[in-house]
Write a protein that binds this DNA or RNA. Structure first.
Lengths: 341, 341
DNA sequence: GTGTAATTTGCAAACGTTTGCAATTTTCCT
DNA sequence: AGGAAAATTGCAAACGTTTGCAAATTACAC
């Protein structure tokens, strides 16, 4: 314990350790890397010394030499709706699972938030930095084209987001269109006839959810769904929702919110207006975040399996790192019926 | 545009670029680093070429040579309550602000979750990896002593957590004890006399909140506050809370929840039991997360300024990186009165 | 035009690992 | 004991940048 502290810091490099052990740096390197070509005796001595002096090989040097870093980049483009997202429960939960999963696979995670508008070069820069072996992009935001461009020349990239027919980058995500259909079907089954969609349809995932709902409305011969564009950041959203509700007063009886977060805010706004849910207006959310269980009344929503998503992202990325070509992974959403529709 | 693509990848190193520009690698390095000692003419040529070929210097090599990486490690020890935390809104929000703040200062963020029980060496390993210039520890969990040990020998570390008299590591955090006092005072002012504390007091921050509340109860001559140990993960918490409520039925009229998340769950549980809030039982939370505004009724809580916390963490860390000694930073909590107490 | 100072450049040695190759030692077989 | 094969080791050259120092160039003053 004591000499641990006194000697700590004196052995900084593999060469120091080699001198101590009376062998060459190469041997130390091999011993610490667990290669089979070093004698068990010497390996044990080296490991013992390493432990005693708290030695750890420098990852930068190792990365440089081996041309791989053991780090996966995770980048969150803050596109259309700058301020939001990272505080968004959904992305954060996904990030948490990603961290777990990458750790399990022996990778570290380098997190970067970027604002594409002010930094057109965000993706190339990250990739070209030499710091990461591969990259996971969380959310396509409004950067679909740029991601497509990069995908042509760079293999180890997987994106969380929406799958579009014929796209070239590998994506993992929920079938948003199907989810949208489920939501609309539920609203209609619950008795709603005049539907509205709450959310920003410039985000591609949300657009797909909207499209799914529209499919159903059209097939059922209902009036077109009214789009109520709304930002995701709680401050702006509250106001906007209040405005929408005032503007559409009496003209709608079912709301499909792009997100549970929006749905929860909507619920609050409806209560303030004295609108009964689900009696006067039915409401369906998306994601099935923890908050969905805690609203009053509990929220009917479309569930995304976040853990499965994270596993899928990492799994596909590792396969791509190994040189494999991989297809995109589209996960099935699941309707969770609670009490708002 | 076209030749951009065709040439991309041919220029991988500073030496390649030097050859193209007809200068030495050293000059290219200086030019790209924006040093003053290179001729404006040649600098421009080099920058132009670099842009044209999408060249970016390898960060690993640079880091190795300069002995600094431009990366700050952020580590979340999952101590007492393994599964939780990263999905915890509070930590996630803090992480988001940290990412912003570090980016603003030109640093990248390397995220690591560790389970100290199964990996006693978690902190030394991260620090010794050579991958990071400094480290921010989010939450002391039950690792106070280990952090203290490390602090003696390693400067660039700042910790989010609770400040204890005489501790040796630099910490940023809310004055939990004061926050606890505020909560208890509010409960009492609202008419409560028999208080309970909801949360796991083995977590040091929570213990301090509890202690603050106890101070007040004692000073006011009330009965001792009943501790209701509760895990943070929503699944377990719900059950446990239900159990606590059943067990203390009629014996308490004020609850101080260690966290807004717990408070929200508690509110749901109370409603299920048909207990009126705040009429039968008053409730105060902690954090002032977005959810506090959305519960029914909206939650009275003690606010932590998360953004200020993140700024403080980064600011202190940078000062320490510059060699400065820094004191800990204790932020004042703020009572936010809504409708549960 | 010469000498000196100020600017720019190039050279080459680091930074700490890993790894192909060759040299050495050990093992095993006859 | 002798020899070949197998197991260990050491050597030295990378990986791609940065930077102190010296060399070369330019600018300036007389």
């Amino acid at each position: 314990m004591n000499d641990d502290k006194s000697t700590r810091g004196s052995v900084r490099t593999i060469t120091d350790l080699a001198r101590l052990a009376g062998v060459s740096p190469g041997t130390v390197s091999r011993a610490l890397a667990g290669k089979s070509l070093v004698n068990t005796k010497t390996r044990e001595k080296i490991e013992e010394l390493a432990r005693e002096h708290g030695f750890r090989p420098n990852q930068m040097a190792s990365g440089l030499r081996r041309q791989k870093t053991g780090v996966i980049g995770v980048v969150i483009p803050l596109g259309h709706d700058t301020r939001q997202q990272i505080s968004d429960s959904f992305f954060m939960t996904l990030l948490g699972f990603l961290a777990d999963e990458l750790t399990r696979q022996g990778y570290d995670l380098m997190l970067r938030r970027v604002v594409p508008e002010s930094d057109a070069d965000w993706l190339d820069r990250f990739i070209g930095s030499g710091m990461i072996d591969g990259v996971i992009v969380i959310g396509q935001s409004d950067q679909f084209d740029r991601i497509e461009d990069v995908a042509d020349g760079y293999g180890p990239m997987v994106v969380w987001g929406n799958h579009t027919e014929g796209q070239r980058h590998c994506v993992v995500g929920t079938d948003n269109r199907l989810g949208g259909r489920m939501a609309a079907e539920r609203l209609i089954a619950a008795g709603a006839k005049r539907l509205a969609f709450l959310g920003d349809t410039t985000a591609i995932e949300f657009a797909a959810r909207f499209a799914g709902a529209r499919d159903v409305a059209q097939k059922m011969g209902l009036a077109p769904i009214i789009a109520l564009p709304t930002h995701l950041s709680p401050e702006r959203a509250s106001e906007e929702i209040a405005g929408h509700l005032a503007a559409t007063d009496g003209r709608i009886d079912g709301i499909f919110a792009a997100t549970d977060t929006l749905a929860a805010l909507c619920l609050t706004a409806l209560r303030e207006r004295g609108v009964a849910v689900p009696d006067d207006i039915k409401l369906v959310g998306f994601d099935d975040l923890p908050i969905a269980q805690q609203t009053v009344p509990p929220l009917t929503t479309v569930r995304q399996d976040i853990a499965a998503g994270a596993r899928g992202l990492v799994d596909l990325l590792l396969r791509r790192l190994a040189g494999e070509q991989t297809e995109s992974l589209v996960l099935p959403p699941q309707l969770v019926v609670r009490q708002t529709a």
